[in-house]
Amino acid sequence: MKVYTGGGDKGKTSLFSGERVAKYSLRIDSYGDLDELNSVIGAIHSHLPENTESIKNELLHIQARLFQAGAWLATTPESSAIDFLEELEESVVKDLENKIDELTAELTPLKEFILPGGTPGASWAHIGRTVCRRCERKVTQLVEEEKGSKIDSALQVILVYLNRLSDYLFVVARFANKAEGRPDQVWRQP
């Protein structure tokens, strides 16, 4: 099966709400980053060791939520396409905070900066964290532009979720190192 349609060869692409927009538009940029983040989470999933099943399951849930979030980023406020969309419930943020607390409780308290890296799983989690931060920055701009619109509240929840997600990926990185007996590399002034 071919996966290309060629519909975007002229530098435009379709939003979920049907409008044709330039590929460099903020919406496309935002959900492009979200797509990248989702792919990196797939890489984290495949590089985590076997004794991290609960984290792996959570990553799959996160990937599904990011799809849900992506549809909001690809929809304009006045579009009837909103009827198809379901907002991320605020409870998903709380759930993620709980997961962060659970993992953090199993880790040595952090008193110094650590270098991003370690095991393949930890390294991918650090990459995911940074991609997530970039995505958050783009969505922040989108939220700013859509303030007061019909999708304002939906975007706000996505923004908070992304913020917690980068924190979650940070603790996942540390947990991945711990799970394979590799200490985090503490930063030292060169």
Partner: peptide, 19 residues
């Protein structure tokens, strides 16, 4: 869909497309 989309982009750049 690809071919039609290209034509629409050229002739009707403000049109919405659902496909």
């Amino acid at each position: 869909i690809k071919d039609v989309t290209h034509v629409i982009d050229t002739r009707f750049p403000d049109a919405n497309i659902y496909s």
